[in-house]
Simulated scan of single mutants.
Amino acid sequence: MRPRPISALVVANIKRQTRDRVGLFFMVVMPFVTIMFVGLAMGGADDKIPVAVVAQDSDPTARAVLEQLEKSPSLEVRRADSADEVRTDVRRGTVAAGLVMTPGSTEFDLVLTQTSGSGMAARSEIDVAIGKVSAVQEATRAAEKAGATPQLAEQYVAEAQAEGGAVAVRNSGGDDGTPSGFAYTAPANLLLFTFINSMAVAAALVESRRIGMVRRTLAGPVSKGVVLLGEGLSRLLVAAAQAVMIIIVSSLMFGVSWGDPLGVGIIVGLFCLVATGAAMLVGALVNNPQQAPAIGPPLGIVLGMLGGCLWPKEVAGEVLATVGYAFPHAWAMDGLLALTRPGTGIGAVWQEAAVLAGMAALSLGVAVVVFRRRALQAA
């Protein structure tokens, strides 16, 4: 197979793509604008989720809950003066959630937006803090009923807590927690924009067919396999360039740690192959250059929603989260998020890589068959 015709096709396609200013905006600028604003809304670079709390220091229960919340490494606790202030801050998005503790009451008001991933994460931390305080109070009351004085009951509970602190739970393969802030939005938008822009540039393939570029190429001493490889390599380079640019810029601008380079390279590379196959398939099926941008990006957004690229899959519910695993975004997202955890390598994401490899083979295989029948035979 001759390298010169292939490189000529690749160069011609890349030049045509760089002349599309709207396309360049969505490839070069839009991903980082999205990462910045959504990342800030989810907690920013420090991954701490802001929560507003109304509490009176004179109330022992409220004070104990507040102390537990301030100990959480995932929360940034902000004191508020009133319930109205908390609701306003949650509505504006300046905090992910709010907790209003009325003095003397054992029922607290939790304020959050149900569709917010950071709000749901904050609720989990708040539930843990309240649970710890409630457990201490229940243990203290039980000791007093058994005949201990309040002071002695408090001492017994403190001793029990100290002994319980020696017990640790080690995660042996489960989820260590979903990252937030830029650590979440950078991988999410890498997958989202790599797929969307790959589907959008399928319009260039349709345009090549419309203006007869494919037909003129085949008129020369060039085989159909060379044309197929050149067109596929062009789409793969666009997808890879989009992904590499997001990885580099997000690391420099937002301090995102992507994890094991080999693991990230394999997951991202396989996803780019899936996106390439999808772009080739759309480019072969549609007959008008305007149809590709009308079909590809909406499809990419829907798959991104199902795969957790727009919000954590937990927010979408169990049914939609399960449906998402029928598509590559969910598997790639799981793999990239797993690799952000310290000490995680390619061995921890072999299942995601295997599924993506199968999807890439299927996507490219179908695209090759359809492209040969519709684009090459018609030429």
Results as ranks from 00 to 15, higher is better:
Ala243Lys: 01
Ala240Thr: 12
Met199Thr: 14
Tyr325Thr: 05
Thr194Phe: 04
Ala153His: 13
Gln137Thr: 15
Arg235Gln: 06
Met36Tyr: 15
Gly131Tyr: 07
Val54Pro: 03
Ala367Ile: 01
Thr149Asp: 12
Leu273His: 02
Ile247Thr: 00
Leu69Lys: 00
Gln290Gly: 10
Ala360Leu: 08
Met213Ala: 14
Pro297Asp: 03
Phe25Asp: 07
Gln291Ala: 09
Ser208Val: 12
Leu356Tyr: 06
Lys313Trp: 07
Ala338Gly: 09
Leu192Ala: 13
Gln377Cys: 05
Gly232Arg: 01
Val54His: 03
Gly181Lys: 05
Met359Leu: 12
Asp260Trp: 06
Leu364Arg: 05
Leu310Cys: 15
Glu207Cys: 12
Gln242Phe: 03
Ala200Asp: 10
Ala8Met: 15
Ala378Phe: 04
Gln114Tyr: 10
Ser82His: 02
Val65Glu: 08
Arg235Asp: 05
Gly164Asp: 08
Val274Met: 06
Pro3Ser: 02
Thr88Glu: 15
Gly225Asn: 10
Asp127Cys: 11
Asp59Ile: 14
Asp176His: 14
Tyr184Gly: 11
Leu310Phe: 13
Ala375Glu: 06
Ile126Met: 01
Arg372Gln: 13
Ala367Arg: 02
Ala121Gly: 04
Ile248Tyr: 02
Pro187His: 05
Ala275His: 07
Ala52Ile: 02
Gly296Lys: 01
Gly177Pro: 03
Val77His: 00
Gln290Ile: 12
Pro5Gln: 05
Asp20Asn: 12
Ala348Cys: 12
Val51His: 00
Gln377His: 12
Val53Cys: 02
Ile267Ala: 05
Ala122Phe: 01
Val370Lys: 07
Ile301Val: 11
Val100Met: 10
Ala332Trp: 03
Ala129Gly: 02
Ser58Glu: 11
Leu152Val: 09
Ala292Thr: 02
Ala378Asn: 08
Ala135Trp: 00
Glu67Cys: 09
Ala375Val: 10
Arg16Leu: 13
Ala284Asn: 06
Val90Glu: 04
Glu107Ala: 09
Val238Thr: 06
Ala332Thr: 07
Val355Cys: 05
Asn171Gln: 13
Val226His: 04
Val282Asn: 15
Glu314Pro: 11
Ala378Pro: 03
Val33Glu: 06
Val10Lys: 06
Glu144Tyr: 07
Ala142Phe: 07
Ala243Cys: 01
Gly308Arg: 02
Met280Arg: 08
Phe193Asn: 13
Ala361Phe: 02
Val302Ser: 00
Glu70Asn: 08
Tyr325Arg: 09
Pro298Arg: 10
Gln290Ser: 11
Pro328Ala: 00
Pro298Asp: 09
Lys71Gly: 05
Val86Cys: 00
Pro73Arg: 00
Ala96Leu: 02
Gly119Lys: 04
Ala330Lys: 00
Ile266Gly: 05
Ala8Cys: 14
